Computed example of a mutant assay.
Amino acid sequence: MTAKIIAVANQKGGVGKTTTVVNLAASLAHHGKRVLVIDLDPQGNATTGSGVDKSSIESGVYQVLLGEAEVKDAVVRSEAGGYAVLAANRTLAGAEVELVQEIAREMRLKNALEPVLNDYDYVLIDCPPTLTLLTLNGLVAAEGVMVPMVCEYYALEGISDLVATVRKIRQAINPRLDIVGIVRTLYDSRSRLSQEVTEQLQAHFGKQLFATTIPRNVRLAEAPSHGLPALAYDAKAKGTLAYLALAEELLSRK
């Protein structure tokens, strides 16, 4: 079985994309799945959140995109998370400029992943919050997009922009791309606004809306500063249990 490749994306920042990538990866690994996390954001937060020192990266996603390294040689292990990481740091910002002149520049990640697809069950791609060439590489490589979102009205506008982007990429480059699901993050079940936005999401997206919600949780917010997924930091925290439930829901959607 080849890996299921999921890009975690939202053109709005601060919605928990990286938190979702790191903790979903750790939760899938906890369920016995072989997982690769690809950090496509030059800030490298998924890298540090996985316990990998981004300043010590010799080969990472930057070298892979430029054809200077192969994925199998560039991945490192997240000991805390139990998954593999294709790491990123600030040098990745330069890839945008360097790839502009290249032929099929939006296909670089997809082509690089092909030799290792049998080595993993899931590949999770942490995309930058803007639609850059890096994000485009992630969406072209993926077969599905997971969208973390906060239940606010402005978030609904952002999600409609992303759906339009996914549709364009599906028509032009990647016919298999689709929305895997929408995850409500930083969720407050007592908020009337959260309930109203949820109703709108259910009306528009139906089964694509994950039933699992990720609550606001201090332990979830603290974990990255220790270089740990929440599962390794506090296995009993509400946020940790929510991501374990999200992993189970994703696995049940085959």
Rank of each mutant, 00 (worst) to 15 (best):
A203W: 13
S189D: 13
R219D: 08
P148M: 01
L246F: 09
D178F: 12
K207W: 11
V166T: 02
R216S: 08
D161R: 15
Y243F: 12
E157Y: 11
E222M: 04
H204M: 13
Y154I: 08
D161Y: 13
G181A: 01
A141N: 08
Q200H: 14
I169G: 03
I169R: 08
L134R: 05
K236H: 13
I179K: 03
L177Q: 07
R176I: 11
R170D: 04
I173D: 12
H204D: 14
M146H: 03
V166H: 05
T212L: 04
P229E: 00
L186E: 05
P175S: 05
L228G: 00
E222F: 05
L136S: 00
D234Q: 07
V150C: 04
V147D: 02
L244F: 01
L156E: 00
A235R: 15
V183P: 08
L209N: 00
Y187F: 14
E196N: 13
M149I: 10
A155L: 06
L246R: 02
G138T: 03
A235F: 14
S160V: 13
V163S: 12
L246E: 06
Q195M: 12
Q171M: 13
S194T: 12
V166M: 05
V145G: 04
P224I: 08
I159V: 10
V180P: 11
Q195I: 11
A141T: 09
V147G: 06
S194K: 10
G239R: 02
E222T: 01
D161W: 13
V140I: 03
A247T: 05
S189E: 13
Y187W: 09
P229A: 08
G227W: 07
A221K: 07
T165S: 03
R190N: 07
S194H: 13
I182H: 00
G227L: 06
I159P: 01
V150M: 09
Y154P: 08
A237E: 00
L220Y: 00
T185A: 02
L139D: 08
N174A: 09
M149H: 06
I179A: 05
